Simulated assay, not measured.
Amino acid sequence: MSTYSIKDLEQLSGIKAHTLRIWEQRYNLLSPKRTETNIRYYDDNDLKLILNVALLNDNGYKISKIAKMAMDEMREEVVKLTERSLTHDDQIHALTICMIEMDEERFDKVLSTNILKIGFDQTMMNIIYPFMSKIGVLWQTGAINPAQEHFISNLVRQKLIVAIDGQVSKSNGKKFILFLPEGELHEISILFAAFLIKNQGHKVIYLGQNTPSDDLLAVYKLHRPEYIVTVITTSPSAEYVQEYIEALSERFSDTKIIVSGYQIVGQDLKLPNNVFAMHYIRQLKDYLREIELAPQEK
């Protein structure tokens, strides 16, 4: 079972730590535990409770009424709300609860409902990305265990693969090679990029995680794509990113290279002329709209 500080609860629920302390005292809403050194902490049950409370409170339920609800009653109300609500924050709360409970069926239902209502790409950009960004911070600080993070990532990955398979490339679409550098395993962003690219009718040659440089070169020589796309989250590390980008640029000098990821965004990098840094996923959508679908000469 994971443990959380009150700041963790604040970040996940959106309820200020000061408010949580007031609710503790006034309504006995939470029962924090203490370490041997007398430091307060909370567990998964506390997090689930606060996420439910936050969702109900945001939708007009008074805290005095919420505090009197049994957990089953509270959960039933939350399920009803998330099934009819279109608020992105409500859906992110619901997914966070699914993650804590490792509830695959409920997670799939929340995702599928949103995809039907607002479409796959809007669900990814407005719900999944903010949700994964939120839990990513807590995973890095140890507040969420690796099993929970892997559980969510694999479910999202499955959805992306199905969505990609449903897209059809056009005969005059441009060619894109998508890959992750050696040692890089964070695949969600590059998979979503593959979906967006295919959704615009372009052709995707997907190499995936941990691609050796020689393999990338071999595929490049075979397909001669107009574009190469990569996302650098952890590998190569910050001290080697500039060198890596320059090597890519030189090796594939006649191709446009799109780069993104934690080691790219906001970093003080000098990008070669054929390299474009993508700071937000929406930039890729805009970039793709600007590409004219012309007959290929290759």
Score class of each variant (00 low, 15 high):
Lys175Glu: 13
Ile188Trp: 02
His186Ile: 08
Leu191Pro: 04
Pro181Arg: 03
Phe179Ala: 06
Ala193Glu: 02
Asn172Ile: 10
Leu180Glu: 02
Pro181His: 02
Pro181Ser: 01
Ser189Lys: 00
Gln167Asp: 08
Ile177Asn: 05
Glu187Asn: 01
Glu184Asn: 03
Gln167Val: 11
Ala194Phe: 07
Glu182Gly: 02
Ser169Ala: 14
Gln158Phe: 10
His186Glu: 09
Gln158Ser: 14
Ala194Cys: 09
Gln158Glu: 15
Lys174Cys: 06
Lys170Gln: 14
His186Asp: 06
Lys175Gln: 12
Gln158Thr: 15
Glu182Leu: 09
Lys175Asp: 13
Asn172Val: 06
Asn172Pro: 02
Ala194Asp: 08
Phe176Gly: 04
Phe179Asn: 01
Phe179Ser: 01
Ala193Gln: 07
Gly166Asn: 15
Lys174Ala: 12
Ile161Met: 12
Leu180Lys: 01
Gly166Asp: 14
Lys170Pro: 01
Ala163Pro: 06
Gly183Ile: 10
Leu178Ser: 06
Phe192Val: 05
Lys174Met: 04
Gly173Phe: 06
Val168Thr: 15
Ala163Thr: 08
Glu187Met: 01
Val162Trp: 07
Ile164Gln: 13
Lys174Thr: 00
Leu185Phe: 11
Gln158Val: 12
Ala194Ser: 13
Phe179Leu: 04
Ser189Leu: 01
Gln158Arg: 15
Ile164Tyr: 08
Asn172Thr: 10
Leu180Trp: 00
